[in-house]
């Protein structure tokens, strides 16, 4: 999907060659003014001086990045050492998003495989069933999850009733709850791209492997997985990237106890901290990380495209 979108298709027809600039004008104006320009202004803000309690002073400084990377002690005058606070927050977000991605992959891959091997008629229905929950407001899904996981919630009630556990599981307000929330929020993003590549996979290759006495597991690992790798990578990115910047799940499910990147940034603009340049700098660092990830992905796609 991403490959097709990025190239705009190969069949370049030129029926409307003369009008093309006029046709592009509205999107250039709207996106240039309301997406591209804001991102540029944000870059500028990250190099400005913070105003006490919110806002900026128009004096260039590297203070925001300095605050991010260097620890100058509680009082701001010790010798700078590497700042772990924010690296930890970023690391925690990467770790949480990573675990959520792995969980999605473990559940999502078999699901995608199963759906892709259904007969033609029922396949579309399965895909339809997978997409419906995605259309439900993320906020509502997160709140549902919170309701379900509560100490006295339906899940614990059910488990207590069937006698699987003797005491309610304490899941809410833990890291596990955040991971579950992220996993649940973005699971369809994992299933769909993998499904798309398995659907294109030529199963005669599996048959050939079986004829050569490969076990089923070996076939899956050596033949199927390499062939559907672009789909798996696309799925991982589609789960990982939004999980990285999420703040609903940490806020509602994690008890707002541990900052993640999203909540750290939000706090700079809407919460106690009121440090705009720092919020802009943290956003910039997040954006750069995502862009690097997308570049690697595009590279992979190109290589995969060249190989087949």
């Amino acid at each position: 999907m991403a490959g097709g979108a990025a190239s705009g298709g190969s069949a370049a027809s030129d029926t409307y060659k003369e009008a093309r600039h006029w046709l592009l004008m509205p999107s250039w104006l709207v996106l240039g003014f309301f997406v591209f320009a804001p991102v540029c202004v944000m870059v500028i803000y990250s190099f400005l001086t913070k105003e006490f309690r919110g806002g900026v002073i128009w004096e260039p400084t590297l203070a925001a990045y300095d605050q991010f990377f260097f620890d100058r002690g509680l009082f701001g005058d010790s010798d700078p050492t590497l700042q772990w606070t924010y690296i930890e927050i970023f690391w925690r977000s990467i770790w949480q998003a990573g675990l959520a991605t792995i969980m999605s992959l473990l559940i999502g891959f078999p699901t995608a495989y199963f759906i892709a091997t259904r007969p033609d008629g029922t396949r579309a229905l399965w895909v339809f069933l997978i997409t419906i929950p995605y259309w439900v407001n993320l906020l509502i899904r997160t709140v549902s999850m919170k309701f379900l996981l509560r100490d006295e919630g339906p899940m614990n009630d059910a488990l207590l009733n069937i006698g699987l556990i003797g005491e309610p599981l304490q899941i809410i307000n833990t890291n596990l709850a955040v991971q579950l929330g992220l996993f649940y929020s973005y699971l369809p993003f994992m299933v769909l791209p993998i499904y798309a590549s398995i659907e294109r996979y030529n199963f005669t290759m599996s048959e050939a492997a079986a004829d050569l006495y490969a076990t089923k597991f070996t076939t899956l690992r050596r033949i199927v997985l390499p062939a559907v790798k672009p789909g798996v990578i696309a799925g991982c990115i589609l789960v990982f990237v939004p999980s990285l910047g999420a703040f609903l799940a940490p806020d509602l499910l994690g008890g707002a106890k541990n900052f993640m990147i999203g909540s750290l940034i939000e706090e700079q603009f809407k919460g106690n901290a009121g440090n705009w340049p720092f919020g802009a700098a943290a956003s910039m660092i997040l954006l750069s990380m995502v862009l690097v990830l997308l570049l690697i992905f595009a590279q992979q796609q190109r290589r995969a495209g060249a190989a087949t």
Partner: peptide, 17 residues
């Protein structure tokens, strides 16, 4: 671009802008 940029970043950029 709007789907490449993490939503929180786009939100911050729009607010600042």
């Amino acid at each position: 671009l709007p789907i490449m940029v993490p939503e929180i970043v786009l939100a911050v950029a729009t607010l600042i802008f």
